[in-house]
Design a protein around this nucleic acid. Structure first.
Lengths: 122, 122
DNA sequence: TCATTATTTCAATATTCATTGAGATATTGA
DNA sequence: TCAATATCTCAATGAATATTGAAATAATGA
C-alpha cells in the first residue's frame, strides 16, 4: 500500500501516543490472529472506554483492522498499512540519501531471515 | 542511532504535523548543507514565529539539527535520527513478520542505488 | 425473553498543541 | 555605537486530543 502525505500524517499521529504505540507493538507480535479488545486494553492498562477510543483511532489510521468473533471484537495488525508507512518514511528520507536507508536495510536481514525471525519474535 | 520507545514517540509526534513533515522532507532534499530558518519558513508558508516553533520541535525530537552561520541559523536533516526511526519501526513491525520489512527493503534498491538515487532526488 | 459479557458511544472535563503578534537577542556592516 | 537583518521567546488565545464514567448496543446461553 502506497501512502500519500495525509495518510502518513494520520499514521504518525496514531503512533505518537504511548498507549497506541504499545497497542501496535502488541498486535504485531500477536500476528494475524490478533487479540480481543478487552485483552488489548488489559495488556496496555487502559479502561475499556479508553482502549476502544485508541483502537478506533489506530483503525482509522489504517494500522490495524477488526473483525467480530462472537461477543468479542478482534483487532489485528494491518501489515500492509505498517509496511506502507515504513516505505513512505524511506522514500521521503532516502530521496538520494542512502545513509538513511542502508542501516534500515540491515534490519531486514537481521530480523527477517528465517533463522532469526522466530528467535526475534520470542 | 538506536531509538527507544520514548524517543520514537517524540519522533512520531514531530512527524504527525503537516508543517513539520513538510519541513523534514525539504531538509532531506536539501542535504547536509541544510537551509536557513527563514527560507524553510517561506518554503512551508509559516510565520517566522511558527517556523521557529516547529523547527525547535523537530530538533528536540532528534530529526534535524542546527548551526549558526553568521546571522542565519541553518537547519539540516539529522540522517542518523531519521534512520533510527525507520529502524525502530522496522524492528517493531518486523518482529517475526517479514511481510512488513520486505516491501520496505525493496525501496532501498529502488531509491538508493547510485543510478536511481540522483534521478529520484530531482 | 432475561441476564450476562464484551464493546462502543456520548458528554463533560482536563490536557496538550498550534498560532499570533509583540518584544527580546544575536550578528553584521556602516 | 547605530540601524538593519535573522531568529527566537513569551504570553494569550483557540483548537485538537485524551480521560472518565455512565449509558447504549450486540451477541450469547439459560
Amino acid at each position: 500500500m502506497k501512502l500519500e502525505e495525509p495518510q502518513a500524517l494520520n499514521a504518525f499521529g496514531a503512533l505518537s501516543q504511548e498507549t497506541r504505540l504499545k497497542m501496535v507493538r502488541i498486535l504485531v507480535q500477536a500476528g494475524p490472529e490478533g487479540m480481543a479488545a478487552g485483552a488489548i486494553g488489559e495488556a496496555v492498562d487502559a479502561s475499556s472506554s479508553s482502549a476502544s477510543f485508541h483502537l478506533a483511532h489506530l483503525e482509522r489510521a489504517g494500522l490495524i483492522q477488526s473483525r467480530r468473533e462472537s461477543r468479542s471484537i478482534i483487532y489485528s495488525a494491518n501489515f500492509e498499512g505498517l509496511s506502507g508507512l515504513v516505505e513512505f518514511l524511506m522514500r521521503d528520507c532516502c530521496s538520494g540519501h542512502p545513509e538513511v536507508c542502508l542501516p534500515a536495510a540491515a534490519v531486514v536481514s537481521d530480523c527477517c531471515t528465517p533463522a532469526k525471525a522466530s528467535a526475534g519474535a520470542a
